[in-house]
Design a protein around this nucleic acid. Sequence first.
DNA 1: GTAGAACATGTCAGTGACTGACACAAGACA
DNA 2: TGTCTTGTGTCAGTCACTGACATGTTCTAC
Lengths: 209, 209
Amino acid sequence: MPSGRQDVRERLQAAALELFRERGYDQTTAAEIAARAGVTERTFFRYFPDKREVLFDGEVGMLAALSAAIADAPDNLGPMDVLLRTFRSFEKTIEKNRPFNEPRQAIIAVTPALRERQLLKSAAMAVVVASALEKRGVERKMAALTAQAGVAVFDHAGRAWFEDPSLSLGEHMKRAFQALHGLAAQNAKPRSRTASRSRTASARPKRHK
Amino acid sequence: MPSGRQDVRERLQAAALELFRERGYDQTTAAEIAARAGVTERTFFRYFPDKREVLFDGEVGMLAALSAAIADAPDNLGPMDVLLRTFRSFEKTIEKNRPFNEPRQAIIAVTPALRERQLLKSAAMAVVVASALEKRGVERKMAALTAQAGVAVFDHAGRAWFEDPSLSLGEHMKRAFQALHGLAAQNAKPRSRTASRSRTASARPKRHK
DNA sequence: GTAGAACATGTCAGTGACTGACACAAGACA
DNA sequence: TGTCTTGTGTCAGTCACTGACATGTTCTAC
């Protein structure tokens, strides 16, 4: 039954997606996935280090591309602009993948174990992004912070696009970045400069624990 | 051997921390933790839903306090300011807990399974924060985005404080928030860097890998 | 064309996380 | 005093995951 190596991999992923949709992640055993793909459980674990990972795959290739795209961005941009620009350069690809990602994301959303794994992937992405920013000369902690915020915004835009596809993903991204922008600006809103307020009651409600 | 219910819980946590430090998380079985605490494995799983959770506990109580603190913040602040203020109100408590958190955090840092769980906890915190912001009248998506960014900054400050305790946690938080602020502001600003342009990043670096 | 290496898979046995069911002890309470 | 509740131990079982080994298939060198 097994033929090409790539073929087996894809059969396993397809089988997993089907079964998860039919019975849910927890009610599906690795052996069942393997059986539907025409291999044994042992083979399943030769392709994927654990059961969760069968739903997370494209992300690896994306990281390298992401890193390269950040490196290639023009020189005269601030770090956050680099990220916006980079993420938007993936817009088309991601939009094209929506039919595949939609059911996948639906399963992840209702399965805590998978949400956990997805958070790990996002964190990994932030690490890669941070490192790519550092290579552009951004100071280390700044790079980490920017990456973290940027990935958060990216995820946020992705979720927004998922529940409202009437706007393009790029538009959602633009808005999310603008919102973040506005947030920071709002900080100084009550007319006087932020620095002057450093004295006022250094915020201590009576809660603890 | 088991005496009070709370007592057993704490013995289990202490035993787990000890064993994880001695042999590492993966080399420690739940049965061993239970044995050192003077109970059986089955009892361990009556106190904690899974092995990872034994290291994450205080966080539950913190969420309620966080939510309350956000609700109690003065009215005239932008959402991000509310968060900075709120987080800083926890400064003392967190600093006091450092001796307990330090070894714990060290173990988490070297154990992927635990890092994953910690990310889930942060995400849960973001959800709570977002909901608390919404109750203050912040629009839903804006609340989510603010919470996400705020928690990211909070985590970032925590990590920075961990590796450099010469500055207070509050100071790290202030700086992280200011950095985020600066990031957004920088967005619109074309920057000319000193030693850039001709050589550094514009020549496409190696692409592969 | 064939020997042998390299690779992909199957089989089997085993560990460890976690769960449900039941029995039992001790204190709370009627 | 007897019953009820609560916390625990015991046992059997499922499932994720792993190491070791045997077998088949494909690739390569000669």
